[in-house]
């Protein structure tokens, strides 16, 4: 697993560098990445409920990247970039698959779809994160969670904008 640091910046973000982890499509390695991100969140005093939310959303994003994006092909890589500050956690997960249109997914919460055994990952990401943004190709998702113990909810949308 290759780990580097870069100086990518998002609009409205601080100077904290992003960490980049590149790994082959393997759920075991994905879980190690998850632990790295969650440890950083704990160090930045995210609440227990925020950690639960980030873990849940990140698990879904990483499994999607390995299974659905890269089809568990060990020659294909998943790139995770993350940056955690006291105010927010940003995690971008990119796979080497063809991407997809999240707008075309059926709504798993309508009655006729309740018995579907799949298709709830993105719903959970959107429910638990402050922001979930896909790139136009659909092979990269950027998850953002504001530390609600740190910044008031009213400033979240402004910071995202």
């Amino acid at each position: 697993m290759k780990r580097t640091r870069s100086k990518l910046k998002l609009a409205g973000s601080c100077d904290t560098p992003w960490a980049t982890i590149d790994f082959c499509s393997c759920l075991h390695k994905a879980r190690q990445v998850e632990e790295n991100v969650l440890t950083a969140c704990q160090q930045h005093h995210f609440s227990e409920s925020d950690i639960f939310a980030i873990k849940l959303a990140l698990e879904e994003a990483l499994v999607n990247a390995c299974k659905h994006g890269n089809k568990m092909d060990p020659t294909k890589h998943v790139k995770v970039q993350f940056r955690v500050t006291d105010q927010r956690a940003d995690v971008a997960v990119e796979d080497e698959g063809p991407g997809f249109n999240p707008g075309e997914l059926p709504d798993p919460t309508i009655e006729e779809n309740l018995e579907m055994s799949h298709g709830r990952g993105i719903l959970l990401m959107r429910a638990y994160m402050s922001s979930v943004v896909f790139n136009p190709t659909g092979n990269k998702v950027t998850l953002t969670k504001f530390n609600d113990a740190y910044s008031p909810a009213t400033s979240n949308s402004a910071a995202l904008g």
Binding site: F52, L56, E60, V63, E115, M116, S117, G119, R120, G121
Partner: peptide, 16 residues
């Protein structure tokens, strides 16, 4: 204290 959508999928399959 934690589960994923894949676990929910398995529960749905069992329910069916």
């Amino acid at each position: 204290d934690h589960l994923s959508s894949a676990a929910l999928g398995t529960l749905i399959t069992i329910n069916n």
